[in-house]
């Protein structure tokens, strides 16, 4: 009980803090500056820009998922499906239809997002554990579709034969090398963060949180809770699909693994590890998860055991996630 309370404090807007600029605004500005400067400072500490793009893409996916998971209380174990649909949408568009990666991203996001919009209402027919089982099963359907529909998707070998082209705007061509692409990812990340932030601070977002907290009370206030679960499902689906599209661009490749439930598990642990009741929790989780995985897989073949241990240990010892953990410390 105390755990939930401590964690929720960070998730909700408090009465405005005294002073001209609140600490929250300052913190967000600082975060933005750090992210903007990544291509300059990351190489100095031994990182590479593509790794930062990967972190942001996974953070974006986990943030999208977290709207449903952490703020609406819907435990989806199948969001990789929308990630993968976004990825295949982008890959197929670039391979067959267009050289514009922006158009491809738009189409990929729509494909994944619309799938989530159509399937959400089916999944929300049950709650709790069963909701999780249904979402995972729906997700696996797409996985097997991608594996079997060889002629379109390339089957288990994955989809190749597309690449990032520079973005041509009127009077301006943006090269899509590692750094250029990083800024594209950052723009997408920032726009989605702003969108999610706006939603969470609106009556719609308040309704989502109400469903997480007590759906019975909401039903007896006359709210059709399933409709709102489905809306949250859809919004999170669009965000996750965009992340998937970016991921396909980062790799110039996508495979059925981007649809598989194991990737859904990665997104979930990123949200939980960072703190799922915290707006920036998924970003913190993605930084840790991607860096650890990148490092460990370079030094041992048994990296799966290490990833498994991250799951086990964070569930046992950091149920509030890293940010939740520190928030509680500073609160007490």
């Amino acid at each position: 009980m105390t755990m939930e309370i401590a964690s929720a404090r960070t998730a909700v807007a408090k009465p405005p803090a005294p002073g001209l600029i609140s600490r929250r605004v300052l913190g967000n500005v600082a975060l933005g500056l750090v992210l903007l400067a990544v291509p300059f400072w990351l190489p100095l500490v031994g990182g590479y820009t593509d790794l930062a793009s990967r972190v942001l893409i996974y953070a974006l996916a986990a943030m999208g998922l977290n709207l449903l998971l952490g703020f609406t209380g819907g435990l989806s174990f199948g969001h990789a499906a929308y990630f993968g649909l976004g990825a295949y949408g982008v890959g197929l568009m670039l391979k067959y239809e267009t050289h514009s990666i922006l158009l491809a991203l738009l189409v990929g996001t729509l494909v994944g997002g619309i799938a989530a919009t159509l399937l959400g209402p089916i999944a929300v027919r049950r709650r709790g554990i069963y909701f999780a089982m249904i979402t995972i099963a729906i997700g696996q359907m797409f996985y097997f579709l991608a594996v079997r529909w060889n002629s379109l998707t390339g089957g288990e070998d994955g989809l190749t034969g597309f690449s990032r082209h520079p973005i041509k705007l009127p009077g301006l061509t943006v090269p899509m090398g590692s750094v250029g692409f990083f800024y594209l990812v950052l723009v997408c990340f920032g726009a989605c963060a702003l969108l999610l932030w706006t939603v969470l601070n609106s009556p719609l977002g308040h309704t989502f949180v109400g469903i997480r907290e007590n759906y019975k009370r909401l039903i007896f206030l006359g709210v059709r809770t399933k409709r709102y679960l489905a809306i949250s499902f859809a919004i999170s689906g669009f965000v996750v699909a965009l992340a998937g599209g970016l991921n396909a661009l980062l790799d110039n490749f996508t495979s059925p693994n981007t649809l598989n439930y194991t990737l859904s598990g990665d997104f979930l642990i990123i949200a939980v590890l960072g703190g799922m009741r915290n707006f920036w929790g998924p970003l913190a989780g993605a930084v840790i998860f991607i860096l650890v995985r990148d490092y460990v897989s370079s030094i041992t073949d048994n990296w799966m055991t290490v990833i498994g241990l991250i799951f086990v240990l964070s569930v046992l010892f950091f149920p509030l996630g890293i940010l939740g953990f520190f928030n509680r410390k500073s609160a007490s």
Binding site: A132, G308, L309
Partner: peptide, 24 residues
């Protein structure tokens, strides 16, 4: 813990560990 996510992620992690052990 009321939220089912924890057992789900725990057993998911266990599956990874057991699979990796078998492989090793």
């Amino acid at each position: 813990r009321k939220d089912p996510i924890y057992t789900l992620l725990l057993t998911f992690g266990l599956a990874l560990i057991i699979q990796d052990m078998i492989r090793t």
